[in-house]
Write a protein that binds this DNA or RNA. Sequence first.
DNA 1: GTGGTCTAGACCACC
DNA 2: GTGGTCTAGACCACC
Lengths: 142, 142, 142, 142
Amino acid sequence: MFFSIDPNNGIAIYEQIVRQVKFAIADGVLVPGQLLPSVRTLAVSLAINPNTIAKAFSQLQNDGIVETLRGRGIAVRGDALEACREARCSLLEDRLRGAIAEALHGGLNAREIKRIIATQLESLDGQVATVATPLPSTGNSS
Amino acid sequence: MFFSIDPNNGIAIYEQIVRQVKFAIADGVLVPGQLLPSVRTLAVSLAINPNTIAKAFSQLQNDGIVETLRGRGIAVRGDALEACREARCSLLEDRLRGAIAEALHGGLNAREIKRIIATQLESLDGQVATVATPLPSTGNSS
Amino acid sequence: MFFSIDPNNGIAIYEQIVRQVKFAIADGVLVPGQLLPSVRTLAVSLAINPNTIAKAFSQLQNDGIVETLRGRGIAVRGDALEACREARCSLLEDRLRGAIAEALHGGLNAREIKRIIATQLESLDGQVATVATPLPSTGNSS
Amino acid sequence: MFFSIDPNNGIAIYEQIVRQVKFAIADGVLVPGQLLPSVRTLAVSLAINPNTIAKAFSQLQNDGIVETLRGRGIAVRGDALEACREARCSLLEDRLRGAIAEALHGGLNAREIKRIIATQLESLDGQVATVATPLPSTGNSS
DNA sequence: GTGGTCTAGACCACC
DNA sequence: GTGGTCTAGACCACC
């Protein structure tokens, strides 16, 4: 499964799911027409109540990202890719901006922030390298 | 006032206050022995309910950062500086790490993340400079 | 209370609430800035689960009709009136159109439908006359 | 085929089929003794799951409108005409009454409702005429 | 099997 | 007091 939920990171669980579905579409992991994992399947595999999953999917439907096929499941809409790419950018930028703003406001200067970020990127990049960077020939991706 | 509260950034308001008090101490804006602004003063100036301020101060007391001086107010403890410096680092690192982790997990690679961060640093650094460090020549602002 | 819910009329309860809130705003019964009845209050007075009320209010927020004032309640937005007037028209027209289409398709002709409608209007109009037609000078309101 | 199903009009699909069968009988399009189209035929022509058709037919049997002729199919019962005429009236009246009640409750007065109805009758009557009344010489279909 | 709706009841943050 | 989120479990319509 391509979702990883942290129930204590301050972001509501259903919101984490909404974001990750959008990211997966933006990334091509979920393609237009494809069915999302079912509410019950996700609920079991993430150990989360089905209502919470349903709430996330309902919001994705409101956002025009998915559509329900009665009795069959919930599918990625044909026009979702572009919207998800834009959403991913703005969602991630917002979060990074918030974190950086707090760091600056909290008394760190740009150099210290950059050093922290570089450290985090190194340690985190390794963990997801096999998933997120399947192109070994990129050369200097960092 | 050195607090800036965003009621919609996902972090609880009382938690934002706790963090910013710790940052102010780590930064030397608040020094050991100094009284915090009163609950009422802060509530009015931030347009926030006094209960929320009180909850933040209560948590600061639990964290061993401040102490109540009966009849006088709430003061920064003598041993708070070191704890706040450590807390600042870990709090900010945690938040930055979370944001970066989501970005990597969401399909951005390190280069793209660095570009976004550089952009945010440029735009934010300018804004904060005028707000957070208004006294370039002061030397001993406390 | 200005809501009347029928749990068995085929329309979801939360959807009935959404419609009636919009109608109340369109009608001036709820005015911009005014707080909606609280979730708990409505739940008790309508004998409906609070979650169902909350779901309705959440959809009203998605529709841009209301906004939540943290800790105070949910208020009608300043720009809700026009949107609700338009929504009322289209929602009611859709439902009337559906009913008429079924009647025509089911073998009634326009004259029979008009007769039924006239009968219903007479009996129903009387019931709500004091609420819905406060203008005695209209002359031929029917 | 004399059925037109709208999967999104709020009425359950099987219920739409039940109603339309009754209307067809009331209208003489289906006569006592006549076989209904088979479950499979209807399922294909309406692009609906056979289970849904079967559920509708089962309810028609419970309502005493049709009977199963073993090995031959499902036929309109000899005494169905009168029951369907009554059912048609009450079903359509109920729906029209519901729509009108909501319109009155929602703040429209009888005059506005009548104007909407007249508009709908005009536009719908034309469309339905070509489908439901294949008699080009009728002249005054209302 | 699928999602949609609803009830019942809990905890949280904020006023 | 206020709304927001979450869990647990039920029933429905449709496939």
